[in-house]
Design a protein around this nucleic acid. Structure first.
Length: 393
DNA sequence: TCTAATGATTTTTA
DNA sequence: TAAAAATCATTAGA
């Protein structure tokens, strides 16, 4: 991504030996303009004691002085001074030393903050978007998952293909928005990074900016942009969740049962009015006959019991109607005990005895208010076809 | 548009 | 834990 190119003609000093100010890097400074390190006088070591050395030291002193005072000058003056310094023969060496000093002081402290572990929340969001089919290859996995979930919970009607395609189109809408936004962020991030890099490279001409520093800056920018991306991912996840909940919320997709199914259920209910609690087997049988799920049968009976109990009078007519039907069916059943019903499956043999609307009131299981508060479950194994005990009491 | 009916869900109860 | 009870959300008919 970022190439480690030396910003100046000289690389950093090798850091060996102590020079002026005790900094190892100054050795480089000394050596640059003193190709010959012979000390013919054999007196003071290093630069001191030589004419050349004195000159160089004055040079460095001058440069440092100029740098120190550059901020006190006017812009024009500083600009001119900057140019002069840039062209100074000592500039590359001085620059590398300053870079080194900077690296070894303030910047080295930041090293510990780098290499943050991957944000677990971001990982979670990524996984979710992938599972929902928003991120990654487009294949409608999320939609399929939602559909299968709905089907397994008994909330999907067979004519759900329309809703399914609706869900898919909405999901792909979310997907396209997500990808557009993501692309925008990535582009902005790249543009901004390039801009900052260019700026720093430009600045490196006048102040000590190392390639490593630029790299760090790039990492900081990427972190900032990635937090924006996290927000985008989060809001996308929320949108998918809302879409999913709407799609899966069966209450919004409620369809009335067919007339035939309601009849089958009512027949069972009124012919078992004394104990309208179908067993699991009975529920399965009813579910099969009605083309609904077992849980829907349970719901139906739950609703029916409570609504019947709350307003017996209102259901009187309906109850009488089914009692007639039951009686009629039973009479026919005398000739042929297992006459196939209208759905083509065999109907249970119904009872001859006329229906007694409030018979359950006199049962032990029920209380005086006419409810089935005893909550006696029907004996296990009873089914619409096998339970003949009801209506006879 | 209003309202009763109805299927589903949630909370409470025994 | 299943059923009762309360509630929600939608459908269908006037």
């Amino acid at each position: 991504m970022l190439q480690q190119q030396p910003l100046t003609g000289n690389g950093p000093s090798n850091g060996r030996g102590l020079g002026v100010s005790g900094h190892p890097g100054m050795h480089a400074l000394n050596s640059v303009h003193q190709p010959s390190q012979h000390r013919s006088d054999g007196g003071e070591s290093g630069l001191e004691g030589t004419e050349n050395g004195h000159e160089t030291r004055r040079d460095i002193g001058d440069i440092l002085q100029q740098i120190m005072t550059i901020t006190d000058q006017s812009l024009d003056e500083a600009q001119a001074k900057k140019h002069a310094l840039n062209c100074h023969r000592m500039k590359p060496a001085l620059f590398s030393v300053l870079c080194e000093i900077k690296e070894k002081t303030g910047l080295s402290m930041r090293n510990t903050q780098e290499e943050e572990p991957q944000d677990p929340q971001l990982v979670r969001l990524d996984n979710m978007l992938l599972a929902e089919g928003v991120a990654g290859p487009e294949k409608g996995g999320g939609a399929a998952a939602a559909v299968s979930a709905a089907t397994s919970s008994g909330g999907m009607s067979p004519d759900s293909s329309l809703e399914h395609s609706d869900y898919k189109s909405k999901l792909s809408q979310i997907r396209s928005i997500y990808h557009t936004e993501l692309e925008k962020y990535e582009q902005a991030c790249t543009e901004f990074t390039t801009h900052v890099m260019n700026l720093l490279r430009e600045q490196s001409r006048t102040r000590p900016v190392t390639p490593r520093e630029i790299e760090r800056m790039v990492a900081i920018i990427h972190r900032k942009f990635s937090s924006i991306q996290t927000q985008l991912k989060q809001s996308t996840c929320e949108a998918v969740m809302i879409l999913r909940s709407r799609f899966l919320d069966a209450r919004r997709k409620r369809r009335n049962f067919s007339k035939q199914a309601t009849e089958v259920l009512n027949e069972y209910f009124y012919s078992h009015l004394s104990n309208p609690y179908p067993s699991e087997e009975a529920k399965e049988e009813l579910a099969k006959q009605c083309g609904i799920t077992v849980s829907q049968v349970s719901n139906w009976f739950g609703n029916k019991r409570i609504r019947y109990k709350k307003n017996i009078g209102k259901f009187q007519e309906e109850a009488n109607l089914y009692a007639m039907k039951t009686a009629l069916g039973a009479r026919q059943g005398d000739d042929s005990p297992h006459t196939p019903n209208s759905t083509g499956t065999r109907r249970r043999r119904l009872l001859l005895e006329p229906w007694r609307p409030l018979s359950f009131l006199h049962r032990k299981k029920s209380n005086a208010n006419g409810n089935w508060q005893g909550r006696a479950s029907p004996p296990s194994g009873t089914s619409p076809r096998t339970d003949h005990s009801d209506n006879s009491d």
